[in-house]
Design a protein around this nucleic acid. Structure first.
Length: 465
RNA sequence: GUCCCGUUCGUCUAGCCCGGCCUAGGACACCAGGUUUUCAUCCUGGCGACAGGGGUUCGAAUCCCCUACGGGAUGCCA
């Protein structure tokens, strides 16, 4: 916003309409994200509407998963459950009287009929009977006029429905296609941004819109997210498919959001790591890809590591504390200055919050394990035990425990024994941390302190005699 | 089966609408070299694509057609 200007809402109204029937899928997250981005880009309104018409498959817990995931990703809604709005209620299970009114409109126009206890929408056109390969039986079909779908991503698409379809089930509940269209009309939705799997449904929706005498909104069918390996779209069971996995693994939500933006949308230059404000400014339909995108967890992890590396120390400490506490590495008694110092030393190495306990536990605990792989690597060449033994007395004599003086000790011992100083480092790290890698060694030794370092080296030598 | 959508490096993409600047650019991944006190980081380099075939044109990744392949829909799920 330009400084001093008044924020003027545009008439763009978009909605994200999930169904609380399962977990919050990464594809749903991206659909929500694209709607949110378009609303923010246009100063429009982002509406959350819950499509819970199938009582059998809905649950309140799943509703909470939706709210929780959207909030975690920073996708705030302007109208919807929990925030209200002028077009509520925003749960379809509470909108039955509205649907009844709209049903009556169609009935009055002679566009409905009853069959098998359900209410069907009647297409207009010549009727005939044909064997249907998919249904494996004879079916009454209709030569209906093709519906024109104006799509911002696909261009104009024409598709004709050829069968009447149910809009109210025999159990009295309305069906998705019907409520979806009714609510889009009632909520004055201007742009329908949704997954391409709905493109084929859109001819049904256009039939309904036009039967109501309403011109359909502008559509934007975004490409699907395909699973990493194998064929087909990503499904709930695929690795990396659920937003809650990322929450659990301590991914940074801004990183997940940024990655999702780049999966199917491009700023048309070479930027990828982008501030969300910049993305909002640039986000529009021409930047949206037409082809399905395959999910790539390595690239997702890369985005995350970039965001983690960019974290200020204070924020990192704030995020790290509960993770390390949960892992049992630290307690509320852990010295704050020491904790800060450990993080400062380790920061250049931290690329994921999830790995924090494994990377840092030895700074806080004596019962760290020696990783077998690390040991094998260190012991692969030379005589590491001899090196460790040689350096120990010199370290014990050292009183000025600084990085420079510790380093000087190794230089001196190495030249005295005719070795390279790098022969001493891997085994020393292994002795004090149980690992083959980690933060720079000298700072690590300094932060651990002379007492711990000496004790751990002795202990290591004792165990590896 | 039918209908709809799509097809540039292994993956995400730029270029395509408005044909020449494309010996097709970037990123992830991978590989190699360098920096470094180990591992990592970092730096440099490498590998690597216009699905195929026909047109149109002086000229096509870009326009048209066909084929192949991929995806989706075809529920009283959403």
């Amino acid at each position: 916003m330009v400084k001093g200007s008044i924020l003027i809402m545009s008439n763009v109204r978009v909605r994200f309409a999930p169904s609380p029937t399962g977990f919050f899928h990464i594809g749903s997250a991206r659909t929500a994200l694209f709607n949110w981005l378009y609303a923010r880009h246009t100063n429009g309104t982002f509406i959350l509407r819950i499509e819970d018409t199938d009582k059998e498959r809905n649950s309140d817990e799943f509703l909470q998963v939706i709210y929780n995931s959207l909030r975690w990703l920073g996708l705030d809604w302007d109208e919807g459950p929990q925030v209200g709005g002028d077009y509520g209620p925003y749960l379809q299970s509470q909108r039955n009287d509205i649907y009844q009114k709209y049903l009556k409109i169609l009935a009055d126009k002679g566009r409905t009929y009853e069959k098998d206890g359900a209410i069907w929408f009647k297409l207009e056109g010549e009727r005939y009977t044909e064997y249907d390969e998919f249904a494996k039986k004879d079916i009454e079909k209709v030569r209906a006029k093709p519906q024109l779908i104006h799509d911002m991503i696909r261009g104009d698409v024409e598709r004709a429905e050829d069968r009447d379809f149910v809009i109210y089930r025999a159990n009295g509940e309305p069906v998705f296609h019907f409520v979806n269209v009714v609510d889009d009309i009632a909520m004055k939705i201007t742009h329908v941004i949704r997954g391409e799997d709905h493109l084929s449904n859109t001819s049904k929706h256009c039939e309904l819109f036009r039967a109501f005498g309403v011109e359909p909104p502008v559509f934007a069918h975004i490409p699907l997210i395909l699973k990493q390996e194998g064929s087909g779209k990503m499904s709930k069971r695929d690795r990396g498919a659920l937003i809650e996995e990322y929450q659990k693994d301590h991914y940074l939500p801004a990183a997940v959001r940024n990655y999702l933006c780049m999966l199917g949308w491009s700023p048309k230059d070479d930027r990828e790591i982008m501030d969300i404000g910049e993305i909002i400014e640039l986000f529009d339909f021409p930047g949206i890809q037409q082809k399905n995108a395959r999910f790539d967890e390595k690239k997702m992890a890369f985005f995350n590591s970039e965001y983690v590396k960019a974290l200020p120390l204070e924020t990192l400490a704030w995020l790290a504390r509960p993770i390390l506490t949960e892992a049992g590495s630290i307690t509320e008694n852990t010295d704050e200055d020491y904790f800060q110092e450990v993080l400062m030393v380790a920061k250049p190495k931290i690329s994921s919050l999830k790995d924090l306990p494994a990377l840092l536990c030895y700074f806080f605990n004596e019962n760290y394990a020696t990783v077998e792989d690390a040991k094998n690597r260190v012991f692969k060449k030379g005589d590491p035990i001899a090196r460790l033994t040689e350096a120990l007395p010199a370290l014990e004599r050292l009183n000025d425990w600084t990085e420079d003086s510790i380093h000087a000790v190794y230089d001196a011992v190495a030249s005295e024994k005719g070795q390279k100083n790098t022969d001493y480092f891997p085994v020393t790290r292994l002795a004090v941390s149980g690992l083959a890698g980690g933060p720079d060694l000298m700072p690590t030794l300094r932060v651990l302190g002379k007492e711990k370092v000496i004790a751990r080296i002795r202990n290591f030598l004792e165990k590896n005699k």
